[in-house]
Design a protein around this nucleic acid. Sequence first.
DNA 1: CGGATTTGACCGGCGC
DNA 2: GCGCCGGTCAAATCCG
Length: 394
Amino acid sequence: MVLLKKKKKKRRMHTDLSLETPDHDHEDYKTIQEGDDRGVDDDQNKEVDEEEEEEKEKEAAAEEGSEAVLSLNEKENQKEDKDKISHEKPIEDEFCMLQAEIDRMKEENRVLRGVIDSTLNDFYELQMKFTEIQQKDQPKLIIRAIYQAFLSLGGESSNELFKRVDKSREIEEPLMAADDKELSLSLSLKTYADPHEGEDASCDEGKGTGLTSWAPVEAKLQGAGNLTSVTSQSINPATRKTRVSVRARCTGPTMNDGCQWRKYGQKVAKGNPCPRAYYRCTVAPGCPVRKQVVQRCLEDMSILVTTYEGTHNHPLPVGATAMASTATATANFMLLNEANSSSTINVEDGIPNRAPLSSFLRPYLVKTNPPLSAVSSFTSSAGYSSNPFGAKFP
DNA sequence: CGGATTTGACCGGCGC
DNA sequence: GCGCCGGTCAAATCCG
């Protein structure tokens, strides 16, 4: 019995160390185990329970005789050795488990990379298919692209948009009545005016291109602090290039539209002390798109007028903002209407048929906050002809 | 060192 | 034909 008690004490000492609690005698330990520290560690509690059971067993065995006590002592010794091994083993096991986990993760990573690669391939294939479909069904998709782009900029609900489009259509109806067949742009340019665009015309279109003079409708809006202009022009159907002018408030020298541009020239235009910068699209080699940035308008030094020319021969980068998409879509829209002036645009989901581009955009042009404030479109006679629907919408 | 930017020169269109 | 002007080119320069 004395031997047993000694052993008990020893084992409890071990448990105490593992608990990192100060040494205490048997009685103290017992009170702690039964009291406050009951939930400290399940394993330790189990161990204590086992000990209690063993104690009972041992007491019962002690009654049977000293031989039994001796054999029990042997068992105890064996068990102690096992315990020592079991305390070292978890570290090794844990290490092995971690290594296995790392291996498993590596494998998983490899599989995921494969999935990403195949997904990217699928994406590019779909993008190409989308382009093909888009070329077949251009009007619908352009309207949708513009609509989506402006939704993202204006944050207006689709229902509101459709209502606004309907309203603007009502306003424009009398104007359109003159030539109902002639779709949108040539009419809209007469409808929506921007007095500043005439000045921009000296920048944007050069002399003698015959920009229409603008009604003061938008001037009021500008007076209210909103920059708006929707302009378009159609001259000489033989050779055309699309020009989309975007007027925006921007604090920097240029606005980031998501595309890569390389500056290839700068000129001081007559009548505007602010220099005009010329940029080429460098996203894809041989991309015909150029943009001119009139760095500041005289009226408002924070205004940046960017004129996009031509259409991209490559998909727009993923990072391309709605600005670039909209500009391209507008350019495509212009070209399409030039090519097919009596075409009817049927757009699903409530967007009315034959909605002029300007009327379509107008709600947003009035409403939108910077950076995008205006989109102007031109189709004018010029040197190169570009694939009108070459641009892809993201 | 390579790519981007700057800047003066050059070219073509247009008006006088 | 000349001059003006917008647009482009290309060598020089800058910059990361």
